[in-house]
Amino acid sequence: MDVFMKGLSKAKEGVVAAAEKTKQGVAEAAGKTKEGVLYVGSKTKEGVVHGVATVAEKTKEQVTNVGGAVVTGVTAVAQKTVEGAGSIAAATGFVKKDQLGKNEEGAPQEGILEDMPVDPDNEAYEMPSEEGYQDYEPEA
């Protein structure tokens, strides 16, 4: 019985440690998101679009440190934060509304985080759909 109880105690310690790591990862992701939003706020009209992409990228980098179902929630929060940063930029006159959601080359930025393969159960990952990809044929 002692062996059984000791095993359960060790398992509990492992769960607590994993929860603490997840909590730490979420806190880091939130900190990076805040950094990115402050970065966007300090940019001029020309830099705002690039700044919004930076927020998304920093958040995406930190999301990889967070495991399990938390990833889905962090990704949703990050996307809403990026959308909010863009709205703030438009409201303050840093950028025109028609410039939001495009990178410096004018290509749409939507789907940055949505296409990231995420499995809350950590069982399997699927690649994003290939609808947006084109076949590449090298020139002879």
Rank of each mutant, 00 (worst) to 15 (best):
residue 108 P to V: 07
residue 56 A to D: 00
residue 85 A to W: 13
residue 79 Q to W: 07
residue 63 V to S: 02
residue 108 P to A: 04
residue 76 A to I: 14
residue 48 V to N: 00
residue 122 N to T: 08
residue 1 M to F: 00
residue 118 V to K: 11
residue 115 D to C: 05
residue 48 V to S: 01
residue 45 K to S: 06
residue 63 V to K: 01
residue 29 A to K: 05
residue 54 T to Y: 15
residue 67 G to I: 10
residue 122 N to G: 02
residue 19 A to N: 00
residue 72 T to N: 13
residue 93 G to K: 03
residue 15 V to D: 00
residue 122 N to Y: 08
residue 123 E to G: 10
residue 131 E to V: 10
residue 84 G to H: 07
residue 85 A to K: 02
residue 132 G to C: 11
residue 30 A to P: 00
residue 9 S to V: 12
residue 9 S to Y: 13
residue 140 A to L: 10
residue 68 G to S: 04
residue 17 A to F: 10
residue 32 K to C: 02
residue 123 E to Q: 10
residue 100 L to V: 10
residue 17 A to Q: 12
residue 107 A to S: 09
residue 126 E to L: 06
residue 134 Q to V: 03
residue 32 K to F: 09
residue 83 E to S: 09
residue 138 P to I: 04
residue 19 A to P: 00
residue 25 G to Q: 15
residue 126 E to Q: 02
residue 125 Y to E: 06
residue 95 V to K: 06
residue 44 T to P: 01
residue 108 P to L: 08
residue 82 V to I: 08
residue 107 A to L: 09
residue 2 D to V: 00
residue 17 A to Y: 02
residue 37 V to P: 00
residue 112 I to S: 12
residue 86 G to H: 11
residue 94 F to P: 03
residue 39 Y to R: 07
residue 96 K to W: 15
residue 21 K to Y: 09
residue 125 Y to V: 13
residue 69 A to K: 08
residue 124 A to S: 07
residue 79 Q to M: 08
residue 131 E to C: 12
residue 61 E to M: 06
residue 8 L to N: 00
residue 129 S to M: 12
residue 129 S to C: 09
residue 103 N to C: 09
residue 86 G to K: 07
residue 81 T to N: 02
residue 67 G to Y: 04
residue 96 K to G: 11
residue 79 Q to K: 10
residue 62 Q to R: 10
residue 17 A to D: 02
residue 130 E to R: 04
residue 23 K to S: 05
residue 36 G to D: 02
residue 61 E to T: 04
residue 134 Q to H: 04
residue 67 G to R: 13
residue 104 E to G: 08
residue 97 K to M: 10
residue 54 T to F: 15
residue 120 P to R: 10
residue 26 V to E: 00
residue 13 E to S: 08
residue 76 A to Y: 14
residue 65 N to F: 09
residue 74 V to P: 01
residue 51 G to H: 11
residue 26 V to G: 00
residue 95 V to R: 09
residue 107 A to R: 07
residue 102 K to R: 09
residue 62 Q to Y: 05
residue 54 T to M: 15
residue 31 G to Y: 14
residue 136 Y to K: 15
residue 100 L to I: 09
residue 94 F to T: 05
residue 23 K to G: 01
residue 132 G to Y: 09
residue 74 V to C: 09
residue 8 L to Q: 00
residue 89 A to T: 09
residue 74 V to N: 01
residue 88 I to G: 04
